[in-house]
Amino acid sequence: MRFSASAAVTIVLVIFMAVLLYVAQGYGPRARLLPQLLASVMLVMALIQLVGELFPAARRFLPFLEQESLIANKRTQDISEDVRAVMDANRDSPADADRESAAIGQPGTFWMPALSIGGMILFVALLHYTSFRIAVPVFLFSFIYIVARQTFLASLAVAVTVGLAMFVLFDLVLGARI
């Protein structure tokens, strides 16, 4: 058995579908028909997915778990040997691959996403208890200075500029009452 982050996500999905199914029992027949139908099918599908993730050997018997999309798959990108040759000729430096990864937003380490999510939770709290006029510059300055480790001046410049721009957009132009 191999436990991975992907399996953890699938377990959450299994729990979600199980809760959906369980809670539906309390509704009238008309209100619960579709939720029960959907949750039952999805629960089975999510469990199959989980088996494939926890036991990699089982994937041999579940080929659909690794199947790629019919059209938008990797094979689409090498339409012919000519195209592959052209691609290879162009892919002449590791830097190219790095940029390509950046272009499609490859996921990275665990800590940066975790810090980003934590920072946003604090921002939501700040937004709720103060106002966006205070929350935006405070969050931007502290996030860029502490988490993104940029210079004091760069952090301050971004915080003040974006704070002002958002004040103009939301307060003066849109008249949002927030």
Partner: peptide, 24 residues
């Protein structure tokens, strides 16, 4: 740097969601 762009998108997105109805 992406670490400068990303927080700006975060605040624009979250404040945008707030501005729609004023519900936290």
């Amino acid at each position: 740097r992406t670490v400068l762009i990303a927080p700006i998108i975060m605040v624009l997105g979250l404040v945008g969601a707030y501005a729609t109805n004023g519900y936290i």
